[in-house]
Every structure is written in C-alpha cells, then in structure tokens.
Design a protein around this nucleic acid. Structure first.
Lengths: 136, 136
DNA sequence: ATAAATTCGACCATCTTACTAGGAAATGAG
DNA sequence: CTCATTTCCTAGTAAGATGGTCGAATTTAT
C-alpha cells in the first residue's frame, strides 16, 4: 500500500521545474544534481510526463524541459495517475464482497490528491526549506 | 499503492468466522471451501491474527478457530495493520520535502479504516448477498 | 565539427506477492 | 491405544514490480 519512488521522483521533478524553470528549458542533469537523483533514471520517469502533456522537451545542446502549463493548473492526482497507473486500493477483478469499503478508501485518497496542485507542492517545499521551520 | 490479498483474505476469514462461528471452533478447511480459497495459504494468514489476539485456536480433531472478541470490538484498521504492516503511503526514510502531502494521505486512509469494525463488514457482506441488491 | 542534450531499447539485481510442499505436534473419537 | 483430524512450523518457488544501469542514436546551439 504505497506510492513508489516513481511518483515521488516525478513530483520532485515537476516541482523543481516549477521553481527553477522559466523561459528557457532546464536539463534533466541539473535537476538530478539538485535533487540528488540519478539522471538516467529520471529519463524514464519524464517520458510518460511528456507524453501526457505535463512538460515540453527541447532537444539538442542547451535543451531540456519546460512546464507545459502553469503550476496552478497541474493536479497532483493527474501526475500520480500518469506515473503510477490507476490508484486502485485493491485488485478489481476479485470480489470479496467488501467493495463498499474499498470504494470509500479510494474516494478518500482521491479527494486528498484532487485537492492539491503542483503550486501547492512548490509552496510546501519552500516552507520546508525556510529559516523558520517548526514541526507542530 | 494497493492492499494485497493478504489483508483481503484475512478480512474474509474473520468475517466468515463472525458469521458462521459460535461456541465451537471452525476449521480453516471449511472456511477455505466456503470462500473458495487455498486452506494452506490461509494458515499463513491466520498465524499473525492469532498472535495478535484476534482469534483463539483449538488444536486437534474437531478443532479450529474462534473469534477472541465480539465483531463490534474488532477494528478493520488493526486487522490490516497486522497483516500488511504499517500502512505508510510512502517510504519514510527518504525525504522529498513533501511530507505534509503524505501525512494528509495517511490520515485520510487511517480515518476511513478506523471508522469501520468487523461487524460493519459482516453487514456489508450480508447486504451484498441479499435478494434486494441495488447499485446506487 | 563538436559538445550538450534528449531519446530509445535492452538488460539486471533485488524485493514482494501468492502461493505450494511436507511434515511435526496436539487432541478428541472410537 | 490408535487413528483421523486439525493446527503449527519451516522451506521453497514462480511471476511480477521496483529501481535502477548501460550503450548508442538523434538533435541542435555555438
């Protein structure tokens, strides 16, 4: 019952693009260095994000990636869905007679993810890095 | 991001015990037949449930298992926790700066599971098997 | 041309899942 | 006592997912 590093790296990737990105594209290498990740692995994660239209790519020297839409218009649920596949809590094709329970769980998760945008994550990260950080 | 068959079989097991169980113990074999599962596999699932005190076992001929507590006193969250381990949405030992998001997700899942008892599952199953079943 | 990038396809080690197999130990019925 | 029944315990295992690595082809700014 987990969200794997696929989804997490993917979100970190987009957050980094939102923070450091502007007009000109940003290379995966620079993102990987900033976030301490493997740039070769990030390639595999950004491919579906590109296909799904979250980012645009610019090939060649000084190329890289740019957010295709403003961070406020990118839903975390859609990103997770793209990288992790359908967020079924249980395997659908096996009936245990408890589907109302699994439905309620899925709705609960869905509702949280639905309510958060990429911009929210940006602010979340910046709050975490700020000089006045407290754990309440 | 799933609850595996471990947790689901475990819940089916306890629901079956709650429905068909009374004074005398019920054998895993009979449960396995009713639910269409492998009795040998169920053994492995009921072991932790026994250790956690959800069921009592009676060895020997005409032995089996009995619910240790009334179904209303058994929380679904505790059962899942016993069978699936901590229901962390993400791996804790890797900081992506997004912990508030993961915390909210865990709380949402926790709150749903917390609110459901084994007795609720019994009624859920019986409603699903009744003659007047509608999908709203 | 050359260096910096993306893109593409193959490969691999480790872990989890969902089992199966076999037997030892306990216990009630006859 | 003995035997069938049932729990209890330890291994093993096939398939899939996870989390990568590696090498090479392609594109493009300078």
């Amino acid at each position: 019952m987990k969200i794997s590093t696929k989804g997490r790296y993917g979100l970190m990737l987009l957050v980094d693009l939102a923070i450091h990105g502007g007009e000109s594209p940003i290379s995966l290498k620079s993102i990987a260095e900033r976030q301490g990740l493997s740039d070769h692995y990030l390639e595999q994660l950004i491919a579906p994000l590109r296909n799904a239209g979250f980012v645009r790519s610019v090939r060649g020297a000084y190329g890289g990636y740019v957010l295709a839409r403003p961070a406020t218009d990118v839903g975390v649920r859609d990103v997770i869905l793209t990288l992790e596949g359908p967020l079924d809590i249980v395997d659908e094709d096996f009936d245990d007679g408890l589907s109302p329970l699994w439905d309620r769980l899925r709705e609960a998760v869905d509702s949280v993810l639905q309510s958060v945008s990429l911009q929210d994550l940006v602010e979340m990260r910046q709050a975490g890095q700020g000089p006045y950080m407290f754990y309440i």
